[in-house]
Design a protein around this nucleic acid. Structure first.
Lengths: 226, 226
DNA sequence: ACGCCCTTGGCAGGTTGTTGCCGATCGCCG
DNA sequence: CGGCGATCGGCAACAACCTGCCAAGGGCGT
């Protein structure tokens, strides 16, 4: 990894840090000065460490007032977890953040003032590596990709409305799936038609970004929904 | 729960504790004096707290020498995790514990000298409740059930041999499943026939005690195999 | 070489899951 | 009341998954 970065590096414009605490320590000053932050994330875990850090907290959430433009793109699954959904609403209402939802596979990405990009690598040894990029060409490219994703994403309100009723029965569906109950029996248990039960499962899988039930099981467990 | 226990209780022969630390604190003296311990467990997590506690550690693992009869029944999944498998071999070789594997659904159970039974309840709020039973009739019943499970279980060596080759490719299969790859493509990726790939998946599911792929996904994630 | 045992993978037939389609039903609003 | 939109659930076609069967090979001991 470091090697690859080494070959790409063209004058110290790419830095790599390991682990979230290190990232927070190294970038809090960047957030503190930012007026435009764009952020793509698959869940709310990434910044759990950051959020407890008061310095970056203010920056991430809108420093002192309003002049910070905050855009966040999440995967649908954040709306399945009541706690996450509530947190989303909070940062939207209190901080004025714009929040959208995308069904696309997105990497964890942060853009600061369209001048600095932070990309998350794969989690290794429990800690993820983060690449902090300042090279204009790269940041430009990442920014345009983010903007595209942003445009194609739907607002959280629209999405929230679509899965409002899903959230109610999701726990029961997940429980049945997790116990290996067949669709036939599960539908009867819930007093639904098999077709409707499968509809729920499909919606659930879409929300989890899963293309197979195995994958859905993994994701559900990752999110602590089972 | 407490209510139910209250109605069953017939003179203080059933005690309920919440959480593993409390259990360890309340029962270490029982283990210390035991000469016959039988234990059914689905993984090695339950006694992670206990194992760090020196008092109960000696008791669980054979106190000072040999006069303790130690029987343990596990689910097949312990053999999928190299670390767990190694630990199993260790307590077998060093402590002389008899270890068997059963494909049946078993509840976490501990029997001490055929006079005390400890049954694990369902995990709630992150902590499990444990019922400590001394009433002879109940302990007798639990003991006979355990003995039956013990007899029908296979020795760890026999089982280990059966899934030796499975363990080698399990990580790859789990990875492919976890990425939602279809059987067709997954088989090609591994250079296997579809039939053989599905055989692997079936063995994996059996080892995980799962009857559906969703359930397998959940279990695999629980065990940190994905 | 021969027989033996095991693994492999194609085939076939079954079950389970996935999805589009469409009529039935219900609540809502003009 | 009639229209409208949304959801529901049966049906059907299809895809994916599961499994018994069996022939084809690959070691391995004799």
């Amino acid at each position: 990894m470091t090697n690859t970065v080494g070959t790409i590096r063209t004058g110290g414009t790419v830095a790599v840090v390991r682990g979230e605490e290190e990232l927070v320590r190294g970038t809090s000053h960047l957030f503190a000065a930012a007026t435009d932050i764009a952020c793509a994330a698959i869940d709310l875990r990434t910044w759990s460490a950051a959020r407890t850090e008061s310095g970056i907290r203010a920056a991430l959430c809108g420093r002192d007032g309003a002049e910070v433009r905050l855009r966040k793109v999440y995967r649908p699954n954040v709306l399945l977890d009541p706690v996450s959904a509530a947190h989303l609403r909070e940062i939207r209402d209190v901080r004025g953040a714009q929040i959208r939802i995308t069904p696309d596979e997105i990497n964890e990405t942060i853009l600061i003032d369209r001048r600095i990009a932070i990309l998350a690598g794969d989690p290794r040894l429990g800690e993820r590596s983060f690449s902090i990029v300042t090279q204009p060409e790269v940041v430009q490219g990442v920014t345009s990709l983010f903007d595209a994703a942003w445009r194609s994403a739907t607002t959280v309100d629209a999405y929230d409305a679509r899965i409002a009723e899903l959230r109610d029965i999701a726990p029961q569906v997940l429980d049945l799936l997790g116990r290996g109950v067949k669709d036939e029996a599960a539908a009867r248990t819930l007093g639904l038609g098999v077709r409707t039960y499968r509809r729920r499962v499909a919606e659930l899988m879409e929300a989890l970004g899963a293309s197979s039930r195995f994958q859905a099981g993994v994701r559900a467990r990752e999110l602590g929904l089972v």
